[in-house]
């Protein structure tokens, strides 16, 4: 199986705090991989490094065989740096793309706290996300010379919304939808950018067990239908254990375990991280 995303020794340090320390992981094509860990373990920070929101202090991230993000401690960070592998990438090139460039490469994401476009209805939310793949320039777009492309975008939006069972609510304000549907809309919006890799940041947050069940089958379904690879952060263990092929466990910024759900479940370090260790008195 092909490596789609690969993180090598990624470290993210804010001032003196090392939020992610020497994280190396990979996601293969057509996999569902989960990134779990207690609160504050650095999962979302890792996500933000992959999507270009943060510039990692050290390390390298490759997508589809090509290096897309690379950095090494320099300037003030060279002195402050407290992570591992300080010397590894020194003198190497620095690549720090903005989030929109990452999205163009085919990596889409959702957010932990839903971030829909508040003033727009359901249809426009998805249609707006199609903009990234539009080829029309400003001129042809304003003068409607690209009406064909516009129509294609509208048709694609319609198709996507129908597939996601959101077509009936297309005219409703995005933020007036029930919580579960807002999540679903956010995923649909991410799909509209036509990604190969979908990053889900706590997709089941705030959902009841039944909704979580539905979400699990939903994620599997979109993975099959759009040929996606999924990397997700999640706290609901039943969801994680149910659908992921592999799991990475973070604690205090460092990777403490990886493997299949069964392997991770029986890993003593993971149990310690979640439940705490009894101190020897």
């Amino acid at each position: 199986m092909k490596n789609l995303l690969e993180l090598e020794h990624v470290t993210m340090q804010f001032g003196g705090v090392v939020a992610v320390n020497d994280l190396s992981m990979h996601v293969d094509e057509n996999e569902i991989v989960a990134l779990i860990g207690p609160n504050g373990a650095g999962k979302t920070t890792a996500f933000n490094c992959i999507t270009g929101v943060y510039e990692p202090s050290n390390g390298k991230i490759s997508y589809d065989g090509k290096c897309i993000i690379a950095n090494h401690p320099s300037g003030k960070m060279a002195k402050l740096y407290a992570g591992k592998e300080h010397e590894m990438y020194l003198g190497g090139k620095v690549l720090a793309p903005t989030p929109d460039e990452i999205t163009k490469l085919g990596i889409a994401r959702t957010f932990q706290n839903i971030r829909l476009f508040k003033s727009m209805n359901v249809f426009d939310n998805v249609l707006t996300a199609m903009h990234v793949r539009a080829k029309a320039n400003l001129f042809s777009s304003v003068f409607r010379l690209s009406w064909k492309e516009e129509k294609e975008m509208r048709d694609a939006t319609e198709k996507l919304l129908k597939e996601q069972n959101l077509w009936e609510m297309r005219a409703e304000e995005a933020t007036s939808l029930p919580y579960g549907l807002q999540r679903r809309l956010e995923i649909a919006r991410a799909l509209a950018t036509r990604p190969k890799l979908l990053l889900l940041d706590e997709p089941a947050a705030g959902m009841n067990p039944q909704e979580t069940q539905e979400l699990a089958s939903f994620i599997k379904e979109i993975k099959e239908r759009y040929g996606l690879t999924v990397l997700m952060i999640e706290h609901h263990m039943d969801l994680v254990m149910n659908i992921s092929d592999r799991i990475y466990v973070l604690d205090f910024g460092s990777l403490i375990a990886e493997g299949t759900p069964e392997e991770v479940q029986s890993n003593q370090r993971v149990i310690d991280a979640y439940l705490g260790v009894a101190e020897n008195v």
């Binding site: 989030p99 999205t103 889409a108 476009f117 539009a134």
Partner: peptide
């Protein structure tokens, strides 16, 4: 015409939520 075009929607997306707009490739 501009506001109702694809670029106009991108502008509105930026107004609504810069972080989300950027994550959508704008």
């Amino acid at each position: 015409l501009l506001i109702n075009s694809s670029y106009g929607r991108a502008f509105k997306a930026i107004r609504d939520d810069e972080v989300a707009a950027e994550a959508m490739g704008i």
